[in-house]
Design a protein around this nucleic acid. Structure first.
Lengths: 200, 200
DNA sequence: TCAAAACGTTAACAAAAGATAAGGAATTTA
DNA sequence: TAAATTCCTTATCTTTTGTTAACGTTTTGA
Protein backbone atom coordinates (compact mmCIF):
# COMPACT_ATOMS: atom_id res chain seq x y z
CA UNK A 1 0.00 0.00 0.00
CA UNK A 2 1.28 3.52 -0.71
CA UNK A 3 0.84 6.63 1.36
CA UNK A 4 -2.04 7.93 -0.69
CA UNK A 5 -4.07 4.74 -0.42
CA UNK A 6 -3.41 4.69 3.31
CA UNK A 7 -4.54 8.27 3.62
CA UNK A 8 -7.73 7.40 1.78
CA UNK A 9 -8.55 4.70 4.29
CA UNK A 10 -7.66 6.97 7.16
CA UNK A 11 -9.79 9.80 5.84
CA UNK A 12 -12.78 7.50 5.67
CA UNK A 13 -12.30 6.19 9.21
CA UNK A 14 -11.62 9.65 10.52
CA UNK A 15 -15.25 10.53 9.89
CA UNK A 16 -16.16 8.60 13.02
CA UNK A 17 -14.45 11.30 15.02
CA UNK A 18 -14.38 14.54 13.10
CA UNK A 19 -15.83 16.00 9.96
CA UNK A 20 -13.15 17.76 7.92
CA UNK A 21 -13.97 19.73 4.83
CA UNK A 22 -11.71 19.57 1.80
CA UNK A 23 -9.57 22.52 2.83
CA UNK A 24 -9.12 21.21 6.35
CA UNK A 25 -8.27 17.77 5.11
CA UNK A 26 -5.58 19.11 2.82
CA UNK A 27 -3.84 20.88 5.67
CA UNK A 28 -4.34 17.90 7.93
CA UNK A 29 -2.95 15.47 5.37
CA UNK A 30 0.22 17.52 5.12
CA UNK A 31 0.90 16.67 8.73
CA UNK A 32 0.49 12.95 8.26
CA UNK A 33 3.36 10.53 7.88
CA UNK A 34 3.24 7.03 6.57
CA UNK A 35 5.16 4.20 8.14
CA UNK A 36 5.69 0.49 7.96
CA UNK A 37 6.77 -1.83 10.72
CA UNK A 38 8.07 -5.28 9.92
CA UNK A 39 6.70 -8.21 11.87
CA UNK A 40 8.18 -8.41 15.38
CA UNK A 41 9.58 -4.89 15.19
CA UNK A 42 8.47 -2.24 17.62
CA UNK A 43 6.23 0.79 17.53
CA UNK A 44 7.15 1.67 21.12
CA UNK A 45 9.47 0.40 23.80
CA UNK A 46 9.69 0.90 27.54
CA UNK A 47 11.99 3.63 28.73
CA UNK A 48 11.38 5.61 25.56
CA UNK A 49 8.94 8.44 25.14
CA UNK A 50 6.27 7.61 22.59
CA UNK A 51 5.95 10.64 20.34
CA UNK A 52 3.48 9.30 17.83
CA UNK A 53 -0.04 8.18 17.42
CA UNK A 54 -0.47 5.58 14.74
CA UNK A 55 -3.50 4.56 12.78
CA UNK A 56 -3.23 1.04 11.46
CA UNK A 57 -4.22 0.60 7.83
CA UNK A 58 -2.84 -2.91 7.59
CA UNK A 59 -1.62 -5.37 10.16
CA UNK A 60 -1.85 -5.54 13.91
CA UNK A 61 0.14 -4.91 17.06
CA UNK A 62 0.22 -6.17 20.59
CA UNK A 63 1.00 -4.21 23.73
CA UNK A 64 3.06 -6.08 26.23
CA UNK A 65 4.89 -5.71 29.42
CA UNK A 66 7.77 -7.75 30.78
CA UNK A 67 7.43 -8.94 34.34
CA UNK A 68 9.87 -11.40 35.93
CA UNK A 69 11.23 -12.13 32.49
CA UNK A 70 7.85 -13.04 31.12
CA UNK A 71 5.92 -11.20 28.45
CA UNK A 72 2.41 -10.22 29.43
CA UNK A 73 0.25 -9.10 26.55
CA UNK A 74 -2.35 -6.65 27.73
CA UNK A 75 -3.88 -5.28 24.57
CA UNK A 76 -4.04 -5.36 20.79
CA UNK A 77 -4.79 -2.99 17.94
CA UNK A 78 -5.96 -4.00 14.48
CA UNK A 79 -6.74 -2.35 11.18
CA UNK A 80 -8.65 0.91 11.47
CA UNK A 81 -7.66 1.39 15.07
CA UNK A 82 -5.27 3.79 16.69
CA UNK A 83 -2.12 2.66 18.37
CA UNK A 84 -0.02 4.54 20.86
CA UNK A 85 1.50 4.36 24.27
CA UNK A 86 -1.10 6.97 25.17
CA UNK A 87 0.11 7.80 28.63
CA UNK A 88 3.61 8.36 27.37
CA UNK A 89 2.37 10.30 24.35
CA UNK A 90 0.16 12.51 26.50
CA UNK A 91 2.52 13.08 29.41
CA UNK A 92 5.86 13.06 27.59
CA UNK A 93 7.15 10.55 30.13
CA UNK A 94 8.86 7.30 29.12
CA UNK A 95 6.45 4.48 28.44
CA UNK A 96 6.41 1.13 30.18
CA UNK A 97 5.18 -1.13 27.40
CA UNK A 98 6.40 -2.70 24.27
CA UNK A 99 4.16 -2.27 21.26
CA UNK A 100 5.13 -4.84 18.69
CA UNK A 101 3.92 -5.53 15.18
CA UNK A 102 2.44 -9.00 14.95
CA UNK A 103 2.66 -9.00 11.18
CA UNK A 104 4.00 -6.54 8.65
CA UNK A 105 2.07 -3.44 9.58
CA UNK A 106 1.41 -0.16 7.81
CA UNK A 107 0.27 2.98 9.53
CA UNK A 108 -0.57 6.59 9.22
CA UNK A 109 1.48 8.41 11.78
CA UNK A 110 0.71 11.64 13.57
CA UNK A 111 3.70 12.86 15.48
CA UNK A 112 3.25 14.77 18.70
CA UNK A 113 4.94 17.69 17.01
CA UNK A 114 2.48 17.64 14.12
CA UNK A 115 -0.41 17.37 16.52
CA UNK A 116 0.82 20.35 18.51
CA UNK A 117 1.24 22.33 15.32
CA UNK A 118 -2.26 21.45 14.17
CA UNK A 119 -3.77 22.29 17.55
CA UNK A 120 -2.08 25.68 17.36
CA UNK A 121 -3.14 26.22 13.75
CA UNK A 122 -6.07 28.67 13.57
CA UNK A 123 -7.60 26.83 10.64
CA UNK A 124 -7.42 23.37 12.13
CA UNK A 125 -7.17 23.94 15.89
CA UNK A 126 -10.84 23.63 16.68
CA UNK A 127 -11.29 20.47 14.64
CA UNK A 128 -8.16 18.96 16.12
CA UNK A 129 -9.36 19.59 19.65
CA UNK A 130 -12.59 17.91 18.67
CA UNK A 131 -10.75 15.02 17.09
CA UNK A 132 -8.61 14.59 20.19
CA UNK A 133 -11.59 14.81 22.46
CA UNK A 134 -13.61 12.22 20.62
CA UNK A 135 -10.77 9.78 20.29
CA UNK A 136 -9.99 10.12 23.98
CA UNK A 137 -13.65 9.70 24.83
CA UNK A 138 -13.90 6.64 22.65
CA UNK A 139 -10.99 4.95 24.35
CA UNK A 140 -12.16 6.15 27.74
CA UNK A 141 -15.33 4.16 27.25
CA UNK A 142 -13.38 1.08 26.16
CA UNK A 143 -11.26 1.30 29.27
CA UNK A 144 -14.25 1.95 31.51
CA UNK A 145 -15.84 -1.25 30.25
CA UNK A 146 -12.66 -3.16 30.71
CA UNK A 147 -12.06 -1.95 34.26
CA UNK A 148 -15.64 -2.78 35.04
CA UNK A 149 -15.18 -6.31 33.75
CA UNK A 150 -12.22 -6.81 36.06
CA UNK A 151 -14.07 -5.51 39.08
CA UNK A 152 -17.39 -7.23 38.59
CA UNK A 153 -16.65 -10.38 36.65
CA UNK A 154 -14.79 -13.65 37.06
CA UNK A 155 -12.19 -14.69 34.48
CA UNK A 156 -14.66 -17.22 33.12
CA UNK A 157 -17.30 -14.53 32.69
CA UNK A 158 -14.81 -12.29 30.96
CA UNK A 159 -13.96 -15.08 28.55
CA UNK A 160 -17.62 -15.83 27.85
CA UNK A 161 -18.17 -12.12 27.20
CA UNK A 162 -15.34 -12.17 24.73
CA UNK A 163 -16.85 -15.17 23.00
CA UNK A 164 -20.24 -13.46 22.90
CA UNK A 165 -18.98 -10.25 21.37
CA UNK A 166 -16.88 -12.31 18.98
CA UNK A 167 -14.10 -9.83 18.75
CA UNK A 168 -11.33 -9.99 16.24
CA UNK A 169 -8.99 -10.91 19.03
CA UNK A 170 -10.42 -14.43 19.11
CA UNK A 171 -9.68 -15.11 15.48
CA UNK A 172 -6.37 -13.40 15.20
CA UNK A 173 -4.57 -13.81 18.46
CA UNK A 174 -3.02 -16.92 19.99
CA UNK A 175 -4.73 -18.10 23.09
CA UNK A 176 -1.96 -17.27 25.51
CA UNK A 177 -2.17 -13.62 24.53
CA UNK A 178 -5.91 -13.72 25.08
CA UNK A 179 -5.33 -15.24 28.50
CA UNK A 180 -3.18 -12.35 29.62
CA UNK A 181 -5.61 -9.90 28.07
CA UNK A 182 -8.21 -11.45 30.40
CA UNK A 183 -5.86 -11.13 33.34
CA UNK A 184 -5.10 -14.83 33.79
CA UNK A 185 -2.46 -17.37 32.81
CA UNK A 186 -2.64 -19.41 29.59
CA UNK A 187 -2.95 -22.59 31.63
CA UNK A 188 -5.91 -21.18 33.47
CA UNK A 189 -7.66 -20.15 30.26
CA UNK A 190 -7.19 -23.64 28.90
CA UNK A 191 -8.93 -25.01 32.00
CA UNK A 192 -11.75 -22.51 31.68
CA UNK A 193 -12.32 -23.59 28.09
CA UNK A 194 -12.43 -27.18 29.20
CA UNK A 195 -14.91 -26.34 31.96
CA UNK A 196 -17.18 -24.57 29.48
CA UNK A 197 -17.06 -27.51 27.06
CA UNK A 198 -18.06 -30.00 29.73
CA UNK A 199 -20.73 -27.84 31.32
CA UNK A 200 -22.59 -27.10 28.11
CA UNK B 1 -21.41 26.52 50.64
CA UNK B 2 -23.23 28.70 48.12
CA UNK B 3 -23.08 28.58 44.36
CA UNK B 4 -20.61 31.41 44.09
CA UNK B 5 -18.11 29.88 46.49
CA UNK B 6 -18.42 26.58 44.66
CA UNK B 7 -17.82 28.30 41.35
CA UNK B 8 -14.72 29.91 42.78
CA UNK B 9 -13.29 26.51 43.70
CA UNK B 10 -14.25 25.09 40.35
CA UNK B 11 -12.69 27.95 38.47
CA UNK B 12 -9.42 27.40 40.25
CA UNK B 13 -9.39 23.65 39.57
CA UNK B 14 -10.46 24.18 36.00
CA UNK B 15 -7.07 25.69 35.27
CA UNK B 16 -5.63 22.19 35.23
CA UNK B 17 -7.55 21.60 32.04
CA UNK B 18 -8.27 24.85 30.28
CA UNK B 19 -7.31 28.48 30.55
CA UNK B 20 -10.38 30.70 30.34
CA UNK B 21 -10.12 34.45 30.19
CA UNK B 22 -12.58 36.61 32.09
CA UNK B 23 -15.05 36.91 29.23
CA UNK B 24 -14.99 33.20 28.56
CA UNK B 25 -15.43 32.38 32.19
CA UNK B 26 -18.48 34.59 32.47
CA UNK B 27 -20.21 32.81 29.62
CA UNK B 28 -19.08 29.46 30.93
CA UNK B 29 -20.31 30.20 34.45
CA UNK B 30 -23.76 30.97 33.10
CA UNK B 31 -23.98 27.36 32.00
CA UNK B 32 -23.07 25.94 35.39
CA UNK B 33 -25.58 24.62 37.86
CA UNK B 34 -25.04 23.99 41.51
CA UNK B 35 -26.39 20.94 43.26
CA UNK B 36 -26.37 19.14 46.55
CA UNK B 37 -26.85 15.46 47.18
CA UNK B 38 -27.70 14.21 50.63
CA UNK B 39 -25.74 11.29 51.99
CA UNK B 40 -26.86 7.99 50.44
CA UNK B 41 -28.79 9.71 47.68
CA UNK B 42 -27.86 9.12 44.08
CA UNK B 43 -26.13 11.06 41.37
CA UNK B 44 -26.85 8.32 38.84
CA UNK B 45 -28.74 5.06 38.75
CA UNK B 46 -28.69 2.09 36.38
CA UNK B 47 -31.28 2.13 33.65
CA UNK B 48 -31.24 5.90 33.56
CA UNK B 49 -29.30 8.05 31.16
CA UNK B 50 -26.78 10.21 32.98
CA UNK B 51 -27.12 13.68 31.55
CA UNK B 52 -24.67 15.54 33.76
CA UNK B 53 -21.07 15.82 34.63
CA UNK B 54 -20.49 16.88 38.20
CA UNK B 55 -17.51 18.47 39.82
CA UNK B 56 -17.36 17.77 43.53
CA UNK B 57 -16.64 20.79 45.69
CA UNK B 58 -17.50 19.02 48.93
CA UNK B 59 -18.10 15.41 49.79
CA UNK B 60 -17.53 12.16 47.97
CA UNK B 61 -19.31 9.51 45.97
CA UNK B 62 -18.91 5.86 45.20
CA UNK B 63 -19.68 4.06 41.99
CA UNK B 64 -21.24 0.67 42.45
CA UNK B 65 -22.81 -2.13 40.62
CA UNK B 66 -25.25 -4.73 41.91
CA UNK B 67 -24.44 -8.32 41.06
CA UNK B 68 -26.33 -11.26 42.53
CA UNK B 69 -27.88 -8.90 45.05
CA UNK B 70 -24.49 -7.71 46.24
CA UNK B 71 -23.10 -4.21 45.89
CA UNK B 72 -19.69 -4.04 44.25
CA UNK B 73 -17.98 -0.70 44.61
CA UNK B 74 -15.68 -0.09 41.69
CA UNK B 75 -14.66 3.53 42.04
CA UNK B 76 -14.81 6.74 44.06
CA UNK B 77 -14.67 10.45 43.47
CA UNK B 78 -13.66 13.06 46.01
CA UNK B 79 -13.42 16.83 46.26
CA UNK B 80 -12.00 18.51 43.17
CA UNK B 81 -12.76 15.54 40.99
CA UNK B 82 -15.33 15.02 38.32
CA UNK B 83 -18.13 12.56 38.67
CA UNK B 84 -20.25 11.06 35.95
CA UNK B 85 -21.42 7.86 34.47
CA UNK B 86 -19.19 8.78 31.55
CA UNK B 87 -20.21 6.09 29.16
CA UNK B 88 -23.85 6.91 29.62
CA UNK B 89 -23.18 10.64 29.44
CA UNK B 90 -21.17 10.27 26.25
CA UNK B 91 -23.31 7.73 24.46
CA UNK B 92 -26.74 8.75 25.71
CA UNK B 93 -27.44 5.14 26.63
CA UNK B 94 -28.72 4.10 30.06
CA UNK B 95 -25.98 3.62 32.62
CA UNK B 96 -25.28 0.45 34.55
CA UNK B 97 -23.96 1.87 37.81
CA UNK B 98 -25.21 3.55 40.88
CA UNK B 99 -23.32 6.65 41.86
CA UNK B 100 -24.11 7.40 45.46
CA UNK B 101 -23.11 10.23 47.77
CA UNK B 102 -21.15 8.88 50.73
CA UNK B 103 -21.70 12.07 52.68
CA UNK B 104 -23.60 15.26 52.03
CA UNK B 105 -22.07 16.30 48.75
CA UNK B 106 -22.07 19.58 46.83
CA UNK B 107 -21.26 19.89 43.18
CA UNK B 108 -21.01 22.08 40.20
CA UNK B 109 -23.08 20.51 37.48
CA UNK B 110 -22.64 20.74 33.75
CA UNK B 111 -25.61 19.28 31.97
CA UNK B 112 -25.20 17.59 28.65
CA UNK B 113 -27.44 20.23 27.19
CA UNK B 114 -25.24 23.03 28.52
CA UNK B 115 -22.16 21.29 27.25
CA UNK B 116 -23.66 20.93 23.80
CA UNK B 117 -24.61 24.57 23.82
CA UNK B 118 -21.13 25.62 24.85
CA UNK B 119 -19.49 23.39 22.26
CA UNK B 120 -21.68 25.02 19.62
CA UNK B 121 -21.00 28.50 20.94
CA UNK B 122 -18.50 30.35 18.71
CA UNK B 123 -16.97 32.16 21.68
CA UNK B 124 -16.51 29.10 23.85
CA UNK B 125 -16.53 26.16 21.47
CA UNK B 126 -12.79 25.86 21.00
CA UNK B 127 -12.06 26.05 24.70
CA UNK B 128 -14.78 23.58 25.48
CA UNK B 129 -13.40 21.08 23.01
CA UNK B 130 -10.05 21.55 24.67
CA UNK B 131 -11.57 21.17 28.11
CA UNK B 132 -13.35 18.00 27.06
CA UNK B 133 -10.26 16.62 25.43
CA UNK B 134 -8.04 17.18 28.41
CA UNK B 135 -10.51 15.80 30.91
CA UNK B 136 -11.00 12.71 28.77
CA UNK B 137 -7.25 12.33 28.37
CA UNK B 138 -6.73 12.67 32.09
CA UNK B 139 -9.20 9.93 32.88
CA UNK B 140 -7.95 7.83 30.00
CA UNK B 141 -4.56 7.73 31.68
CA UNK B 142 -6.12 6.81 35.02
CA UNK B 143 -7.97 3.95 33.40
CA UNK B 144 -4.94 2.82 31.43
CA UNK B 145 -3.00 2.52 34.68
CA UNK B 146 -5.81 0.68 36.33
CA UNK B 147 -6.29 -1.81 33.52
CA UNK B 148 -2.55 -2.35 33.49
CA UNK B 149 -2.60 -3.11 37.22
CA UNK B 150 -5.25 -5.77 36.69
CA UNK B 151 -3.37 -7.39 33.86
CA UNK B 152 0.13 -7.36 35.30
CA UNK B 153 -0.30 -7.40 39.07
CA UNK B 154 -1.61 -9.68 41.78
CA UNK B 155 -4.22 -8.39 44.23
CA UNK B 156 -1.53 -8.15 46.89
CA UNK B 157 0.62 -6.03 44.60
CA UNK B 158 -2.31 -3.80 43.80
CA UNK B 159 -2.93 -3.28 47.49
CA UNK B 160 0.72 -2.53 48.18
CA UNK B 161 0.65 -0.02 45.33
CA UNK B 162 -2.35 1.63 46.87
CA UNK B 163 -0.54 1.81 50.21
CA UNK B 164 2.52 3.27 48.51
CA UNK B 165 0.68 6.00 46.68
CA UNK B 166 -1.27 6.72 49.85
CA UNK B 167 -4.40 7.71 48.09
CA UNK B 168 -7.32 9.36 49.77
CA UNK B 169 -9.25 6.16 49.30
CA UNK B 170 -7.33 4.53 52.12
CA UNK B 171 -8.25 7.18 54.65
CA UNK B 172 -11.79 7.78 53.63
CA UNK B 173 -13.22 4.51 52.43
CA UNK B 174 -14.18 1.42 54.41
CA UNK B 175 -12.05 -1.56 53.68
CA UNK B 176 -14.69 -3.61 51.95
CA UNK B 177 -15.11 -0.90 49.33
CA UNK B 178 -11.36 -0.86 48.82
CA UNK B 179 -11.41 -4.62 48.37
CA UNK B 180 -13.87 -4.44 45.53
CA UNK B 181 -11.96 -1.53 44.03
CA UNK B 182 -8.98 -3.90 43.92
CA UNK B 183 -11.10 -6.60 42.34
CA UNK B 184 -11.24 -8.95 45.31
CA UNK B 185 -13.55 -9.77 48.21
CA UNK B 186 -13.34 -8.06 51.60
CA UNK B 187 -12.39 -11.35 53.23
CA UNK B 188 -9.52 -11.76 50.83
CA UNK B 189 -8.24 -8.25 51.46
CA UNK B 190 -8.31 -8.89 55.18
CA UNK B 191 -6.12 -11.95 54.61
CA UNK B 192 -3.74 -10.02 52.39
CA UNK B 193 -3.34 -7.43 55.13
CA UNK B 194 -2.60 -10.16 57.62
CA UNK B 195 -0.03 -11.72 55.29
CA UNK B 196 1.71 -8.39 54.84
CA UNK B 197 1.82 -7.82 58.61
CA UNK B 198 3.39 -11.20 59.28
CA UNK B 199 5.86 -11.06 56.39
CA UNK B 200 7.31 -7.71 57.27
C1' DT C 1 -29.91 6.05 74.33
C1' DC C 2 -30.45 1.79 72.76
C1' DA C 3 -31.31 -1.52 69.20
C1' DA C 4 -29.92 -2.39 64.62
C1' DA C 5 -26.78 -2.27 61.15
C1' DA C 6 -22.23 -2.02 59.40
C1' DC C 7 -17.49 -3.36 59.67
C1' DG C 8 -13.20 -6.07 60.05
C1' DT C 9 -11.21 -10.37 61.38
C1' DT C 10 -10.89 -15.17 61.60
C1' DA C 11 -12.02 -20.04 60.64
C1' DA C 12 -13.22 -23.93 57.70
C1' DC C 13 -14.01 -25.69 53.45
C1' DA C 14 -14.59 -25.52 48.39
C1' DA C 15 -13.28 -23.68 44.08
C1' DA C 16 -10.19 -21.52 41.23
C1' DA C 17 -5.82 -19.94 39.84
C1' DG C 18 -0.65 -20.04 39.72
C1' DA C 19 3.67 -22.70 38.88
C1' DT C 20 6.01 -26.24 36.75
C1' DA C 21 6.65 -29.82 33.73
C1' DA C 22 5.65 -33.01 30.06
C1' DG C 23 3.86 -34.29 25.64
C1' DG C 24 1.97 -33.80 21.06
C1' DA C 25 0.46 -30.89 17.21
C1' DA C 26 1.21 -27.05 14.39
C1' DT C 27 4.03 -23.58 12.68
C1' DT C 28 8.24 -21.36 11.67
C1' DT C 29 12.69 -20.96 9.93
C1' DA C 30 17.23 -22.13 8.71
C1' DT D 1 12.80 -30.76 4.57
C1' DA D 2 14.50 -31.29 9.00
C1' DA D 3 15.16 -29.10 13.31
C1' DA D 4 13.60 -25.76 16.29
C1' DT D 5 10.19 -23.18 18.18
C1' DT D 6 5.60 -22.05 19.41
C1' DC D 7 1.32 -23.34 21.03
C1' DC D 8 -2.28 -25.75 23.56
C1' DT D 9 -3.55 -29.20 26.66
C1' DT D 10 -3.15 -31.96 30.62
C1' DA D 11 -1.44 -33.42 35.17
C1' DT D 12 0.30 -32.50 39.76
C1' DC D 13 0.99 -29.75 43.49
C1' DT D 14 0.84 -25.26 45.89
C1' DT D 15 -1.11 -20.97 46.74
C1' DT D 16 -4.69 -17.89 46.66
C1' DT D 17 -9.30 -16.63 46.47
C1' DG D 18 -14.31 -17.26 47.12
C1' DT D 19 -18.08 -18.61 50.27
C1' DT D 20 -20.30 -18.87 54.42
C1' DA D 21 -20.62 -18.16 59.06
C1' DA D 22 -19.43 -16.58 63.61
C1' DC D 23 -17.77 -13.04 66.75
C1' DG D 24 -16.62 -8.67 68.78
C1' DT D 25 -16.37 -3.78 67.88
C1' DT D 26 -17.87 0.43 66.06
C1' DT D 27 -21.11 3.29 63.98
C1' DT D 28 -25.65 4.64 62.80
C1' DG D 29 -30.08 6.14 63.24
C1' DA D 30 -34.72 5.88 65.10
Amino acid sequence: MDKLAAQGIFREQLKKFVDLNEAEWIVFAQHLDFGAIKKKKFFAQPGTVCREIGFIVKGSVRYYHVKDGEEITGYFSFENEFVSSYKSYLTGLPGTNYIQALEDTELIIITHKSMEAMLANPVLGYKMEQFGRRVAEYYLICYEDRVSSFVTKTPEERYLDLLATGREILQRMPQHYIAHFLGITPVSLSRIRRRILIEK
